[in-house]
Design a binder for these strands. Sequence first.
DNA 1: CCGGCGACCGACCGATCGGTCGCCTCCCGT
DNA 2: ACGGGAGGCGACCGATCGGTCGGTCGCCGG
Lengths: 216, 216
Amino acid sequence: MNAVAAENQGEQSSRERILDAAEGLFARRGYAGVGLRELADLVGLGKSSLFHHFESKPQLYAAVCTRILARIAARVDESLARGGAPMERLERVVDDLLDLLAAQPSDARILLRSLFEDDELAGETREEREGRELTAHIMASISALLREGMEVGQFRSVHVPGLLLSLIGQTVFPFASGEFGQEILGKDPFDPAEVKRRKRETRDLLRHGLLAPAGR
Amino acid sequence: MNAVAAENQGEQSSRERILDAAEGLFARRGYAGVGLRELADLVGLGKSSLFHHFESKPQLYAAVCTRILARIAARVDESLARGGAPMERLERVVDDLLDLLAAQPSDARILLRSLFEDDELAGETREEREGRELTAHIMASISALLREGMEVGQFRSVHVPGLLLSLIGQTVFPFASGEFGQEILGKDPFDPAEVKRRKRETRDLLRHGLLAPAGR
DNA sequence: CCGGCGACCGACCGATCGGTCGCCTCCCGT
DNA sequence: ACGGGAGGCGACCGATCGGTCGGTCGCCGG
């Protein structure tokens, strides 16, 4: 009955290969800019074979987004679970997030793109609802962390939702900026040295901007 | 004749109306997601009439982007020209930029989108080159301001290109985040009160994160 | 009164879009 | 030995894509 159960284990199956290729294409050209024939050619399948694994193009796109969100949610949960003071946890989760975005070059673009395009995804697919729930979970986790830091006095008083939006833009955008970012930086934003520098920069900004004066 | 409407801002004519409508559509659905027939219907023209004003779809898209960049470049130049200490100028230019993004709801999305999609704009149109020059001018102006602030000792030592990318993401993204941002904030990101709050937040982040310890 | 011109239009073009259909092939449980 | 289902294929569908073409209309200078 359930196709997932049949071919579950760590295979490099067609479904995964389709998702990988689709992720790269959607990141570069956006939802409407990707044709299924092109995707099928890239994977090495006939176009009609795609429909054996996904109902429709919107559902495929939702699957791509959900997979990314699941990766991120898992990493955030893992980072936060390792304990420590609020600032220690916050720095760790941001650090791990930067690592993940750097390791998956398509993720940042797809994440931002999906926020711009979701206006018209009217579907009530299970996949889309799962994506929204994952998003909500991630946001709630980090919000709770920020509030906790304020309550114990480690963070200065800030507007949590506003800071959350700023933080997302500041961390995700550089990895999505493509040629533009490369031109400004003078080097590839995904270069390991640059990623390391960006981690340092983000950490410094957090400490200067968020730490309460007394907490030093 | 009705001179007021006709020469209000140079032209209120078809060309401007096409650009206005195209800006909204591109912002919501992306370059590939907008059909010229749909655009023509929205403006109230026949599709073929669009080609009397623009050579092709890519050229139309470039014109939309260039118009936005020109608006921003003009505002930045104006803000910087009014003088003052580096931090005073920086806060003013960011403030004005937030005002502009808030007043033109499509701008933030198109700006970010254009960065994601420019990989395949292979054209060497005059319009595109103008857009790149405007971008370079804006970036160079703000970079120079940051460097000046560091040289006179008002800013702490930072990696200018890195901070530039962070700053763009942090300021532009919230206005492009659409429903997502609205859900997180609990209110419209373009609401005047929220814009005011965001200005305050950005200013505080700049002061905490950029100002040299001695300068406070 | 006329000739030219810019704005505009509907009809049309080949290509491509997302999606369907029927058929084949291989594997696997019985 | 064989039935069936999953995975894959190419041909095909109506719709829509960006773009072209020939022509109409109204205005404006001579």
